[in-house]
Amino acid sequence: MPWSTPTLRDVRTLVRDAVNASLPGADANIPNSVLRVMSDNQGALCHLTLQYVDWLSLQLLPDTAETEWLDRHGDIWLANADGSTGRKMATLATGTGQFQGTIDGTVIPAHTQLQTGVSLPSSVTGSINQLVGFETLEDITTSAFATVEGPIRALDPGSFGNLPDGTEMDMPVVVPGVSSAAFAFGLHGGTGIETDDQLRARILQRIRNPAMGGSQADYVTWALAVPGVTRAWAAPEQGAGTITVRFLMDDLRASDDGWPTGTDINTVDAYIEKMRPVTVKDCYVLAPIKQFMDITIANLVPDTAEAQAEIEQSIRDMLFQVAAPGQTIYAAWVSFAIMNAPSVISFNLVTNTDFVMPSLGHMAVLETILYE
């Protein structure tokens, strides 16, 4: 039968009974007696030990382990693309800065700092503006007649260092002979530290799919080892002897439904090329192909903005769990997701046909939800 930890009251009773059995004529149940106090204190200490064993049992398996112990499981099971083991650490965004000199030949020293304001998520206000720092990586000789470029990187790791091309940056300490305004190009590669849920999923995926020297599951494991990659799939889409790896970066590319850029694809492809066996004829690393879903709902009760927002989030959560390249999204799944929205009482799903993907590479993405 399964183990059940006794309560503190039960443990105290067990200790009193043991004392009574060991000392004929003694009664450890008399209130405020020495035996009663000593028995209850011993019972409390024993109960603390049982509680520790309870907690320890949760740490012994990765599906219930807490952060510190989860990191230990990760160090045992996982290898990352950067040569580390365990949790994927946050990385620095790197790219190119464009500078304009006012005096020809002026040198911008290496490690000259730059900064720009970015909008970061906030649990209180929704977003907050914050200055993000960057630095030059080498001496850059400027020209008064044309812009010059040089390598730069973020000072702090995280996705907030990834800036759109052309973002303007300022020099907190102006270099004489150089315009204080600079522009960023190709700043990418910054990722946040891997969360407990993401690390736990990778550990379980690795345990459930032992390394086989090039199985489909191995390709998924290799893709997930790259910083920023949160979901990956592998299948012989191009026929026997080939493998196609598709992946998403849900956090890093959240503004584009998690879809990777060309640079991201090249990074994952380079790592898989180092790991995969040479016996595979062709290996393709690609982004899934977006297949947009338009959903129409009628007679929603209650028809409120709050209910509509809950429905959208519930459908997105459902797609996060079940959507995959080539995976049909069944109308029943959509209905279930809508009904799971906390405020929803009733509705009619007008688009009640299944969303079939046109190819093995297409993947469902929510586009619009219309209400009638």
Rank of each mutant, 00 (worst) to 15 (best):
W3L: 09
L8C: 04
L8Y: 04
R12T: 07
T13F: 09
A21L: 05
L23Y: 01
P24R: 04
P31N: 03
V37K: 14
M38V: 15
A44T: 14
Q59G: 06
L61S: 01
R72V: 14
R72A: 12
R72I: 13
D75L: 08
W77H: 15
A81Y: 11
D82Q: 09
G83P: 12
G86N: 01
L92G: 04
L92C: 03
G95Q: 04
T96S: 07
F99C: 08
F99M: 08
Q100S: 14
Q100T: 14
T102L: 15
P109H: 09
H111R: 11
H111A: 06
Q113V: 08
G117Q: 11
V118W: 07
L120Y: 05
S123P: 12
V124S: 14
T125C: 05
T125A: 11
T125W: 08
E135D: 05
T136N: 11
V148P: 07
D156Q: 11
L163S: 06
L163N: 03
G166C: 07
T167Y: 03
E168V: 10
V173L: 10
V173E: 14
G177Y: 02
G177H: 05
S179F: 06
A182M: 07
F183N: 08
F183R: 15
F185N: 06
G186R: 01
L187S: 04
H188N: 14
I203L: 00
L204D: 10
M212V: 12
D218Y: 01
G228A: 00
A232Q: 04
A234R: 06
A235N: 11
E237N: 15
G241D: 07
T242F: 01
T242P: 05
M249S: 04
D250S: 15
T261A: 09
G262V: 01
T263F: 05
T267Q: 08
A270C: 09
M275C: 12
T279H: 00
Y284F: 10
P288V: 06
T296E: 10
I297R: 00
A298H: 10
A305C: 02
E306K: 13
Q308E: 14
Q313P: 02
I315L: 09
Y330W: 15
A331Q: 13
V334L: 03
N340W: 01
N352L: 08
D354Q: 08
P358M: 06
S359D: 15
V365H: 13
